[in-house]
Nucleic acid binder design. Structure first.
Length: 488
RNA sequence: GUCCCCAUCGUCUAGCCUGGCCCAGGACACCGGCCUUUCACGCCGGCGACGGGGGUUCAAAUCCCCCUGGGGACGCCA
């Protein structure tokens, strides 16, 4: 009564080459339940499965587990698909909806009934609860006690169908990340596979669907590990070959506790709203629980080329917002400025800036690529570039500290000089400033901060000449005038 | 409670399968320095771990056992 699965050898000797080929095609899937947004745990699972398929040149399917009609919604389904797309994950064919497949499930339940692998049960939920309570009280595993196993009941009011599992022996399988896992059949109880209303339960539907979809490898969260022996038993009873399973540990919060809303159990959408690039989240999630030597940064192509299940970690990982932030900064540095300029308006809008010209943004972006950790941060820092000169707000403390009488003298001179600088570029401005500095035997420090405060309103900005160039002559001169007014 | 899974720096991890090259390597964070025009970037350096106990062995982070700790599952949810 021992069954072993998951080995690599699954070919029978007499199949023809063509068939071997189709059979060896790798098929993976991601099966979210549309009862909430796509969270990072689910996103990581999706990524792993997608990568697995891509690496093998196989297929990656989507299945929407929406059998819980009350809690599922089309809006959530759409949101999940959106998140996947944003991450750059594409799927083969159309998503499959479990809610449309009850007929298939019922056929399989019938087959199980006919072959003696399932039976009707008339026990009420209350009765079953009592059985479980009793077992628990005796220090045993809470289980349905199998009262109806041999009763030979038929369909009837409030009758469910239960799977008739083996009572002895054990199921052993080779998990792609855990290795050999064994569970005694005595630990399992006869699970309900069909409810009184005729609907199928999770374990049955999953098996039927994965088999029907031709899924060959399943990577999923460790919370499904204990379901696996049950599912394997259903595969066997149905005369089907189980796929290979890989159970990745759940992601923990930074405190090693359960992932909570507070620190990371957030949806992919929220990270997008925070101004992360999808590349950063993708890279971070992959590295959380998977590694390839010492490499930290991976392009998508590298990942597709090198991702295998061998390097998946078997121990749980904690979510680290700092490291994610570091990756975000990295990908912003690497990104094409024009691309970022296209993304920026979405983050500028909430700040009250809309319809900013693309070429203007494209000029601003490079100044912030080395400093911004997110697009939100970039948008906020870039504010002073976008406000009208007359609306620029001056930080009182900065004005008091930097725009001294002496600074005002320099600013006045510089303003005159700048009005004639041609071209109005970093090189031209630098040259003009240098000349002024040399003539008056001044250090650059004497004018850097005054200029910065004059044009940005604060003591912080990108390099001053870059800032001046991007601002343009009119703004620079206008703002310098305003600064001189403030100073006096 | 029962069963299953897991255990290297604060965090992500390499190394573990095929013991010696590991008084344990990389990255994030942190600390210090350099660069400098503010803030960042960058560069250099530092701090910092094999959970505990038994074995096996000439030799153990690596193999075995126990303990402890953590997580998950025990649904007519998925």
């Amino acid at each position: 009564m021992t069954s072993v699965h998951g080995g690599i050898i699954r070919r029978s000797p007499n199949v023809n080459p063509d068939q071997v080929n189709t059979m060896s095609q790798i098929v993976t899937r991601f099966a979210p339940s549309p009862t909430g947004h796509l969270h990072i745990g689910g996103a990581r699972t999706a990524i792993f499965n997608w990568l697995l398929a891509k690496n093998a040149g196989g297929k990656f399917f989507l299945r929407i587990e929406d059998t819980d009609r009350a809690r599922s919604s089309q809006e959530m389904t759409d949101a999940i698909l959106d998140s996947l797309s944003w991450l750059g994950i594409s799927w083969d064919g159309e998503p499959i909806y479990q809610s449309e497949r009850s007929e298939l499930y019922n056929q399989c339940v019938e087959k199980l009934l006919e072959t003696g692998h399932a039976y009707w049960c008339s026990c009420t939920p209350e009765e079953v609860d009592a059985m479980r309570e009793k077992a628990r009280a005796e220090g045993k595993k809470p289980k349905y006690d199998g009262s109806c196993r041999e009763k030979g009941l038929g369909p009837g009011e409030n009758h469910v169908v239960r799977f008739k599992g083996p009572e002895t022996g054990k199921t052993v399988f080779k998990d792609m990340v855990k290795g050999m896992v064994a569970v005694e059949h005595a630990e399992l109880d006869d699970m309900v596979i069909r409810r009184p209303d005729g609907s199928a339960t999770y374990n049955l539907a999953v098996v039927v669907d994965d088999s029907d979809m031709g899924v060959t490898r399943i990577v999923r969260g460790e919370d499904h590990l204990s379901n696996t022996p049950r599912q394997i038993l259903i595969y066997e009873a149905l005369g089907l070959t189980p796929p290979e399973f890989g159970h990745v540990p759940l992601i923990h919060g930074p405190d090693k506790k359960k992932l909570s809303k507070r620190h990371g159990a957030r949806s992919v959408t929220e990270y997008r709203d925070d101004g992360l690039l999808p590349e950063a989240l993708f890279n971070y999630l992959v590295r959380l629980g998977w590694s390839l030597g010492d490499q930290e940064i991976f392009s998508r192509d590298e990942l597709v080329a090198s991702f295998t299940t061998d390097n998946l970690s078997s121990s749980a990982a904690a979510f680290d917002p700092d490291k994610l932030s570091w990756l975000s900064a990295h990908y912003i540095k690497e990104a094409d400025p024009a691309h970022l300029a296209k993304l920026l308006p979405a983050y500028l809008e909430p700040l009250g800036f809309s319809g900013v010209a693309q070429d203007k943004l494209a000029a601003i972006v490079p100044l912030y690529q080395p400093r911004a950790k997110s697009l939100v941060e970039m948008a906020e820092s870039a504010r002073f570039f976008l406000v009208a000169d007359a609306d620029l707000e001056y930080d009182a403390k900065a004005v008091k500290k930097i725009l001294t009488d002496e600074a005002a003298v320099h600013l006045a001179k510089l303003k005159e000089l700048f009005s004639g600088v041609e071209p109005f570029t970093v090189a031209g401005l630098e040259e003009a400033a240098k000349q002024y500095l040399d003539e008056n035997e001044l250090k650059f420090k004497a004018i850097a901060q005054p200029l910065r405060v004059a044009v940005s309103g604060s003591t912080v900005s990108p390099g001053i000449f870059e800032t001046l160039e991007v601002l343009g002559r009119d703004s620079v001169l206008g703002r310098m005038s305003r600064a001189l007014d403030q100073a006096s």
